[in-house]
Amino acid sequence: MRTVPLGRGTVPVTELSLGAAALGNLFHTVTDEDAAATVDTAWDLGLRSFDTAPHYGLGLSERRLGEALRTRPRDQYTLSTKVGRLLRPEAHPHGDDLANGFAVPATHRRVWDFSARGVRRGIEESLTRLGLDRVDIVYLHDPDDHEQQAFDQAYPELERMRREGTVGAIGAGMNQTRMLRRFVRDTDVDVVLLAGRYTLLDHSGLDTVLSEAARRGVSVVAGGVFNSGLLADPRPGTTFDYAPAPTGLLNQALRLKDLCAAFGVPLRAAALQFPLGHPAVAGVLVGARSAAEVADAAAMARHPIPAELWRELRDLELIPRDAPIR
C-alpha cells in the first residue's frame, strides 16, 4: 500500500489508515475479539497507520489498539492519538456514556484542557493506556471552543515536544475548515485531519484547507469520507454528520450512487478515493468495527474507477471542476 511522508517531515502514513473510534464501542458494543480481529485484518491487508483518541470509549479504543499492536514491530507502523480531553475518574460512576456516543460504562468524565501542562499530561496518560513507549502523531482534538488556548498554549507545547523528539509529527483534527486553515497558515503543523469537509457531498475544504495546505507543504488526512454513513449506504434514515440526512442530501447521494453504478463502481469506492486525488491529501482515515468492514474498505480503496466517471461527475457539477482526480 502506498506510503507518504507527512508534510516536510519523515513520519509516514499509508494511503488508507484505520480509525479506531468504533473499537471504543462507538454507538454499539464491539467485543474484544472483534476489535483484535479488526486490527489483525488491517495489518494483513497492508494498513500501517492507526488512529485513536482518549475520547473514544473513555480510553477503551486506546487500550484495545495498544493491545493489538503491542506485538508488532514498532518501527513498522504509525500511530496517532489526540490531546485536549483528559479523562478523570467519576467518584460515583453510574450509567453509560451513550450521551457522548459510546456504549461503555460512564466510569470517567472528560475534562477539556488545551493548556501546555494538559498536553503533556494527556500524552503521558495515552501512553499508559496504549502500553507503548511513544506515539508518532499527536493531533489537537476538536479545539473549536478553545481556540485561544489551543493556539497560545497547546500548539507551542506540541512544537516543543516535536523538537525534543517526544513525538514525530503534530497537527490538529477537526470537522470544520476555518480553524484548520488557520493552523495550516499560521503554524508549523505537519498535518491536519479534516473530517467530513472534503467528500463527494461536501467540498468546502477544497478552496480553504486543501489549497492552503498544498501551498505550504502541509499534509491532509481526510476523515469522515462517508459523512457518517450517507455515502456508504444512502437510504431513508441514513445519517449525515451523525444526524438524519436532509432530503436534499439524501437525493444527491442516491443520484451519486446511480451514476457510479452505471460505471460499475460502488459508491463507497468513489467516496473513499475522491479525496486521494488532491496532492495535499496523504491518506484517508476510515473507521471499522469488524474484520469484514476493514476488508471492504481496503477493497474499495483498490477498486478501479474509470476516468469517465469523474468527468461525468464534473460535467454534472456534482464535484468541483477544479477538484484534482488521480
Rank of each mutant, 00 (worst) to 15 (best):
M1F: 01
R8L: 10
S17G: 04
S17D: 00
L18C: 09
A20V: 00
L23N: 00
L23G: 01
L26Q: 05
F27A: 02
T31C: 12
D34Q: 15
A37N: 11
T38G: 01
G46S: 04
L47C: 13
R48S: 13
D51K: 00
Y56L: 01
R64C: 01
R64I: 00
E67I: 00
R74Q: 14
P89G: 10
E90D: 09
P93W: 09
D97R: 11
L98M: 05
F102C: 04
V104Q: 04
R117W: 04
R121F: 07
S126L: 12
L127I: 08
I137V: 15
V138L: 03
L140R: 09
L140D: 06
P143N: 11
D145I: 03
E147Y: 03
Q148I: 07
F151R: 06
P156N: 02
L158Q: 10
R160Y: 11
G165T: 07
G165L: 07
G171P: 08
A172Q: 05
G173K: 05
M174Q: 08
N175M: 05
Q176A: 08
L180D: 05
R181N: 13
R182N: 12
R185N: 10
D188C: 09
V191L: 08
V191T: 12
V191P: 10
L206A: 14
T208G: 12
L210Y: 13
L210P: 08
E212K: 06
V220A: 12
V221K: 03
F226S: 13
T238L: 01
F240C: 09
D241N: 06
Y242T: 04
L256Y: 11
C260H: 09
C260E: 04
A261K: 05
R268K: 07
A271T: 05
A271M: 12
L276I: 04
H278I: 02
V281P: 10
A282D: 02
A291V: 09
A292L: 13
E293G: 07
A295K: 06
M300S: 08
A301L: 09
R302K: 05
P304R: 03
A307D: 14
L309T: 03
L309D: 02
R311H: 07
D315A: 11
E317Y: 07
R321H: 11
D322G: 03
P324A: 06
